[in-house]
Nucleic acid binder design. Sequence first.
DNA 1: GTAGGGTTAG
Length: 714
Amino acid sequence: MYMQFGRVRDASRVFEEMPVINGDVFNSLIYGFRRNGFNEEVVVAFRKMVESCYVPNLDSVFHVIMACGKLGSIVDGNLIHDYVVQNGYNAHVTIANALISMYVKMGRLDLGHEVFSDLVARDVVSWNTLITGYAQSGNWMEAFDLFLCMREATNVVPNKVTLLGLLSACGQAENLGFGMSIHGHLIRAGLLSDFRLGTAVVDMYAKCESFDRARAVFEEDLFEKTLVSWNSLIAGYTRNGYAEEAVILYEMMTVELKLKPDSITFSNVVPAYASLANHGRIQSIHSLIVKKGFDMDGDVVLGTAMIDAYGKCLDLKAAKSLFTCIEGRNTATWNALIAAYNVHSHADQVMPLFVEMNRAQEVFDAITMVVLCQSCGELRSLKQGSMVHGLCHSKGFNSHLSVGNSIVDMYMRCGCVDRAEAFFNSMSFKNIVTWNIMFYGYVRSGHSATAIRVFRKLQLENLFKPDSVTIISFIQASSTAFICHGGEISHCHVLKLGLDSEIWVINSLLDAYAKNGLIECAKALFMQVGNLRDQSSWNVMIAGCGMNGQGREACDLLSQMEEDGHSPDSITFTSLLSCCSHCGLVSEGCRFFEMMVTKYNIQPDVEHWTCIIDLFGRSGKLEEAYQMIKSGLHQNYDAVWGALMSSCKTNMNMELGELIGDKLAKLAPDNCGYHLLLSNLYASSKRWGEVAKARRVFEDGRMVKKLGLSVIEC
DNA sequence: GTAGGGTTAG
């Protein structure tokens, strides 16, 4: 009675106090514990029962096996398995099925399969348990094979559960064809109205990136749209990189339909906001999670997603403090934290963290290796990179495609083209990403000709279809050859590959045309792409006009850009200011600077300051420029002071030049650059007394020979 | 008795 009302402790007390105990009492105790989810107690009671020489009934044997599966204890599992075999229980199909299920839950598909193979009279549950087990552990090939065997077998017919398992396998394998045939079968059999099967179909299509089909089933066939089906669809979009769509669905679900999200909804939508680097939304979801009382410290999956999200939004502090709170961290949790350090100038912290991870006895995986390789590449540390390569080799991660790709990338970033090539040649599996890393590496290290040769090889051998990343490297590589029709060749490739609707490819073409003096070609293409163009396209055109001496046109483009609905950013103003500075458009430059700060609220960086100081210098307003630097935060920028000194030189303003020179010499006595600027200033005055001063400055500054030459020349 | 949705990289 106590057990029926969930009062397990009271039931146990009654049991302890019973004067006479028999087998039936034990059996009902075991049943009671299991019904209430007290799995450890099930195992303990069963052990006591056997030790007291009572013979358990089939139900008790069944329950203790299932409890072992829940607990994941392989030791207890093996013990009970031995007991079952010794006492001949394994002839019962129910008991054998429980054993299969137990091993599946423990991730020991091999042992589960053994039980299955030894079983003579398999029923539909035996097949389903193993098929579902294989599907859930990612062994989808095994799941399909087993299904084919099942169809050959007599006395057994696949049922709903079989189909659920298969749909899950199709999703993981991204086997759209097989998934569609199961969908067809469900329609014919009239099973699509089953909400579990309907949801599994949505999930399968979402995992196969067939969003139109997923949406159609979701909207038209699912009479009962549960939270699970929403979550499936959101997960599909997030996983395949459609962050905006995931976010729209989430907002539709929570705002319009007022459905209450659960922790899985959050785990699905947080990575979407993270990839959009929407720090504000991440913070508001964080407080929503806390408000709803979800146990983020205990829910390691949700916690990991949040750590990753904060990392992507560059909020290391939040990522770190969440990490310390989470109990039961796993490899993914560590990986998320390490990856967070990898972004933005904390790559040097990655290796110490990895050491800490090992000290905490956490197993690392292929993803850890990928992140480690990235940090070595970022730091250009060949020594550490080679060590990581060695580690990958000894742990067998070398044959993992993503790890292999990141090893090639690491060698390329460290400037070791030879080693990158050697590893590339040794790889037995490659994909387009592998080739892209090679192309990009060649272009970056100045081996453009090799990049073009390898591109031709890829096309000739028809190995992989080039994608937008490939073609951008190709455009950059052939950029130097643009004058001799390189532009047209690249443009042809873009059209042939059907990549002309990808704006970043078009922007790359625009940039290459402009850099090679073919600004008219760039303009024609820019007009042609029309509404496809984005902020970056405008930036490329503004910079392009500037570098082709069309300063006024560049300036005019700004208002057109605004009319087109794109706001200028920091890069736009860098291009505009440098264009004004080169073309001597003083008043326009000052207007843009003012506009950047007041209208667009953009904090000027070193490039902006250098340009504006140069412009002031050109208009002879040296004193104003000096006051501007002194009053701002930018006084630590060497280049800004340098620009002012050069203006002093052009304007022959010795007084101010000297003042700045002295100030700088005091600020940074060892900075050769400052001394050079001052020596140059004196030297260019061509006055004997000042040249002598120049010499003194030169000697004081302990300068290298090259820097002093200009003084000696005078 | 077996049973639908989740985290980390690329």
